[in-house]
Every structure is written in structure tokens, then in C-alpha cells.
């Protein structure tokens, strides 16, 4: 194990034990939890523009669908969080497939604009269907996450009003999503997505059913967004349509782009950086007497500058899949060994 890897493990361990420290601040735990919610979203969004090369501008629509699914199921049916997560994921995937199937055959620009329109329609629906969502008044009184182990011991019924347990729940979700993403990236599915991103024509010629794989990507991405929304609903205990405006989609996209399109770890890091930057900017801007919304100016500028000077982000994607693949590493080594004598001969001639 090299130094970089052990350093990362150390940081992760430190972050995970932080809430247990007695002097830990509630504010920092809150920010870390928020950062992890965005990690889930960034990983989910990463599938569509990162793996498949399609711009998705409506990701927050699925986040909103997940959040409201969770909120309504909790309020009306008092379901457990652990039952709601798969249900919300299924609901997200359903809408993803419904939207994706007819539109994913279009060129990228059209697809981007359809997703944008979809997320705006979701917000309009949440605002106007007052009988269901209470509209602009929002949805208060969502119960926090519970763990019901009374079948083991009468006293084991936990309700997570506190910040710390929520932190660990979302950490668990992040770990789960990260694991799923890593498995998918190196699977048949992931390879097909990469092929579509690099050259759709070549991929189709090799027997990849482009539309199917794109719809799968879109549905999985939507499902992960819905899971993020699901946690958010139970964590914040209040939902309102304003939370799911286009800005959020843009922010998540910015995270993915910053980390490097298609790179899972990059998406995680992008989420951390932008959430922290958002908190810092909130302080700085209010002290300058500007409204906190103007922090999006910084996000816009970051996007433009990254695209101009570092279009593959700070952590380019090829590194993750290629360098960890033992077959490719072996091939690289053999090629180097075969070329070494030639290089020496050429150097000698020169």
C-alpha cells in the first residue's frame, strides 16, 4: 500500500470518527453531512455526463422526486426509512426511464434541454399540486430516520433527531453508492458506457445497443439522485419546491466537472470542495453586503475556467479505470519491455 492510499484512508477515518469527539461542533457535522448528500448526487449525475458523455441539466428533478416520495410516504404511511429508500430509488428510475426512452436517441444538446424542461416541470408540479405537496408552503413535519430493532430488544427503538446518527447514515449511503459505482465502472455496463462516450458509431458497430445502455445509465443515475433526495427529506424534515430549482442541478454538475467528468473520486472531491466553498462564500459575501445567492457567480466562473484550461477536470477520468486494471498494466509492462531495446538502439544511433 503506497503513501497516497494510506493518507486517504487516514483522512476518511479521521472524518468518520470526528462526530464521536466530545468537542465536535454541530456546524461542522452539518456541513459534512451536506457535503455527503452532494457526494451521492455528484456520483449519480456523473454516470450521465461522465460515463456516457450526455449533458443532464435536470438532475435536481430526480432529487426532488426522491425527496417528495420520501416525505409523502413518511407523512401519510409512516414507512420506515429503510423501506422508503428502495421505493424512492425505484420511483426515480421509473421517471428516468420514462423520460430517457423517447429522448435519449436525440443528439446531446436536445437531450440536455429536455432534461432541463423536465426538471422545471417537476418544480411546477410540486408548486401547483397543492392537494398533494402543499405547494409553496412546503412539506413540514417529516419524521426523522428511525431504526426499529424492537424484535431483538424491547428498548431498541432509535429516532435520529441528533446530527451524529444522521451523519453515519449518510456516510453509509455514500459508501454503498461508491461501491456500486466502482463495480459498475469496471463491468460490462461501464465499458459499454465508455465506448458510447468515446465513439457511438464504433460502439454500435461492436454490437452495443446504444439506446438501451443510455436508458439504463439515465435510470440508474435518476435512482441514485432519488436516494439522495430521500435522505435529504428525512434529514432536513422539511421540503419546499424552492429547494429543487435549476441552481442545484448546476451546482451538482459543477462538482462533477470540477472533479473530472467520469471520475468517481473526482466527483466526491468536487462535492467537498464546492460545499466548503459555498459555506466560505456565504460568510464572505454577507460580510461584503451582497446577497448569498451571488456565490453562483463564483461557480459560473469556475465552470468556464475549468472548461477553458482544464477540460478534463482536476482528476482526469482515464486514470481510475485504466491504471487499476491488471490486464492493462501487464500489457503496458510487456510493451515497455519490448520497446526498451529499440529505444536504446535509437539512442545509440543518435
Amino acid at each position: 500500500m503506497n503513501i497516497g492510499k494510506s493518507l486517504i484512508l487516514l483522512i476518511v477515518a479521521a472524518v468518520l470518527t470526528y462526530p464521536l469527539v466530545p468537542q465536535s461542533s454541530d456546524y461542522i457535522i452539518h456541513v459534512m453531512t451536506l457535503a455527503m448528500v452532494y457526494m451521492i448526487l455528484a456520483m449519480g449525475l456523473n454516470i450521465v455526463p461522465g460515463f456516457c458523455g450526455l449533458l443532464d441539466l435536470g438532475y435536481v428533478g430526480f432529487y426532488g422526486i426522491g425527496a417528495y416520495t420520501a416525505g409523502l410516504l413518511t407523512i401519510h404511511y409512516d414507512m420506515s426509512f429503510w423501506v422508503i429508500v428502495p421505493l424512492a430509488a425505484l420511483n426515480g428510475a421509473l421517471w428516468g426511464a420514462l423520460l430517457g426512452a423517447p429522448t435519449l436517441r436525440l443528439t446531446g444538446d436536445y437531450f440536455a434541454i429536455v432534461t432541463f424542461g423536465f426538471s422545471e416541470l417537476v418544480v411546477l408540479f410540486l408548486t401547483n399540486e397543492i392537494w398533494l405537496t402543499r405547494g409553496p408552503l412546503g412539506l413540514p413535519g417529516i419524521q426523522p430516520i428511525t431504526v426499529n430493532l424492537t424484535w431483538l430488544n424491547e428498548a431498541w427503538y432509535f429516532q435520529f433527531y441528533d446530527k451524529t446518527p444522521n451523519f453515519y447514515v449518510v456516510a453509509l449511503l455514500v459508501g454503498l453508492v461508491f461501491f456500486i459505482m466502482r463495480r459498475m465502472e469496471d463491468s460490462r455496463l461501464g465499458r459499454a458506457w465508455y465506448a458510447i462516450r468515446e465513439d457511438p458509431l464504433a460502439a454500435a458497430s461492436c454490437g452495443v445497443n446504444i439506446l438501451n445502455y443510455k436508458v439504463i445509465a439515465f435510470a440508474i443515475s435518476a435512482a441514485i439522485g432519488a436516494v439522495g433526495g430521500c435522505f435529504y427529506a428525512r434529514w432536513s424534515m422539511f421540503l419546499s419546491p424552492d429547494m429543487f430549482k435549476f441552481w442545484e442541478s448546476f451546482l451538482v454538475l459543477c462538482m462533477v466537472v470540477l472533479g473530472g467528468l467520469g471520475n468517481i473520486k473526482g466527483a466526491l472531491l468536487g462535492a467537498v470542495i464546492l460545499v466548503c466553498l459555498g459555506e466560505v462564500l456565504r460568510e464572505v459575501l454577507t460580510s461584503l453586503g451582497l446577497p448569498p445567492e451571488t456565490r453562483f457567480m463564483a461557480y459560473g466562473l469556475i465552470m468556464v475556467l475549468i472548461m477553458r484550461f482544464k477540460p478534463s477536470g482536476f482528476f482526469p477520468a482515464i486514470a481510475s479505470s485504466g491504471r487499476s486494471n491488471p490486464l492493462l498494466l501487464d500489457l503496458q509492462k510487456r510493451l515497455a519491455a519490448r520497446n526498451a531495446p529499440k529505444d536504446e538502439a535509437r539512442d545509440a544511433a543518435a
Binding site: M297, G300, M303, P311
Partner: peptide, 26 residues
């Protein structure tokens, strides 16, 4: 970005849109 992938140009366009909007806000 004329020679860059279209995704890059599209993202730049969104970035500029949000940047200009917030400049006007300020």
C-alpha cells in the same frame, strides 16, 4: 473552445449565463 468537445462548449455557455446573471444581481 471551437475545437473542444461540444460538451465543454455547452457547459461554458451555462457557466457564462450564470456568471452574467449574478454580475447583474450585484
Amino acid at each position: 473552445l471551437r475545437k473542444a468537445p461540444r460538451l465543454a462548449a455547452l457547459i461554458t455557455a451555462i457557466g457564462m449565463s450564470i456568471f452574467l446573471q449574478n454580475v447583474a444581481l450585484i
